[in-house]
Design a protein around this nucleic acid. Structure first.
Lengths: 167, 167
DNA sequence: GGTAATCTCGACATGAGGAGTCGAGAAACA
DNA sequence: TGTTTCTCGACTCCTCATGTCGAGATTACC
C-alpha cells in the first residue's frame, strides 16, 4: 500500500493519453472521466507531468493535454518517481543518499531492502506505456465510439465524488 | 519509503534476538540498546510479535524475550506482514481481496502492480533470519565481549532520543 | 474587441495514521 | 514484602496525503 492515490491517478492519466488514437488533445475534464479521477487533483498532477516533459498542453478552447513522447519512451518508473519520490522501501536503502542505518553492527536488513528496491526498479523502469497499451488490448477508439462518453450538459466541477472509504 | 519505522524496529529486534548466542532472554532495555530503538516502542512491538508466536517472553527479574523458533523458520515477510499489513503496493493488487480498479477499461496497471507485489513477496518470504544472521557475519558473542555494553546505573526510560529529522 | 473555454497557480481545510510517551497493573523471583 | 520485569491501554503530537476552491493567464471564435 505504498503507491499513493496521486501516483495512481497520474499513471492512469498517462495511460489514458497513451490509449487514445487520434491526435486531438484531451481536456482535464475528459481525462477525469476516462480515469475516474477528481478533476481538481488532475489540475495539480498534469502541470507536474508537464514540467517533467511527459505531457504537453495547449490552452484555450480546443486545448488540452497530449503525450510529449511516444508511449514506448515513457516508463512507468519515471512517472512513479516523479510523483512519489525514490522507489526504495526504506530511507537507509535509497540509491542516491542512503542515510546510515541506526543499527551499526552489520545491519543485514539493509541489503534485503536494497534487493526489494532493485526488483521494484527493474519492473517499473522496463515497463513502458506502450507495453501497458498493448496489455490493455489496443487503443481506445473503438471503445469510445461504441460507448459514448456521457458529457452531461451541466458539467460542473467534481464529476466523481471522493472514493468510498474501505475500513 | 513504505517500510514504516515500526516495521523497521520489529525486524531489527528479531534480528538482534537471532544474533545472540547464549540462551539467556534479553530484556526490552537490552534490545533497545542493541537496535537503537526507543524502549517504549518495543513495549508495543514485542507483545505483538509474541502474539504471533515469533518470540516468547518470561517475566520477573531475569526475564526477557527470546525467539520462539529457530531463525531459519522465521521469514522476513512474516514480520513485515504482521506489523505492516499486506505487501501489495496498491489496494487494487492485494492477493486476498483486490478491490476493483476504478478505471474499468482494462487497467493494465494492475498487472504491473501485481508483478511488483510478487517480486517483493518472493524476496521477503524466502529470506529467513538465519540468512540475515549469516550475512551479518555470524553471531554477536564476540562483539558483545569485546565491546562492553554500557549498562548505566541510572537506567531510566527513553534511552535513545527520538531520531533526528532529516528534511 | 468581447466572450467563453481552457489551462495555471497557490492557498487552504480536513482527516488519517505514523511515531512516540506515559501510567497503572500483573507476574516472577528472592 | 519488595524489586524487577513484562503487559495493556490510552493519549498526544505532528506530518502528510487528499481533495477543494478562487483568481488569473492564455487562446479560439464570433
Amino acid at each position: 500500500m505504498w503507491i499513493s492515490r496521486r501516483t495512481d491517478y497520474a499513471t492512469r492519466a498517462v495511460l489514458a493519453l497513451a490509449l487514445v488514437t487520434d491526435e486531438r488533445p484531451r481536456k482535464i475534464h475528459e481525462i477525469a472521466e476516462l480515469t475516474s479521477t477528481p478533476e481538481s487533483v488532475l489540475e495539480q498532477l498534469l502541470p507536474q507531468l508537464r514540467g517533467a516533459g511527459i505531457v504537453r498542453s495547449e490552452r484555450g478552447p480546443s486545448g488540452g493535454y497530449r503525450l510529449n513522447h511516444p508511449p514506448a519512451e515513457i516508463t512507468l518508473g519515471r512517472v512513479v518517481r516523479l510523483i512519489q519520490g525514490p522507489l526504495a522501501p526504506i530511507s537507509c536503502a535509497t540509491r542516491s543518499s542512503p542515510e546510515p542505518c541506526a543499527m551499526e553492527l552489520g545491519c543485514a536488513l539493509q541489503q534485503t531492502w536494497a534487493e526489494v528496491r532493485d526488483a521494484t526498479i527493474a519492473i517499473l523502469d522496463t515497463t513502458t506505456f506502450a507495453d501497458l497499451v498493448e496489455r490493455s488490448g489496443g487503443r481506445w477508439s473503438a471503445i469510445r465510439d461504441s460507448v459514448p462518453v456521457t458529457i452531461s450538459g451541466g458539467a460542473e466541477r467534481a464529476v466523481s465524488g471522493p472514493a468510498p472509504k474501505v475500513p
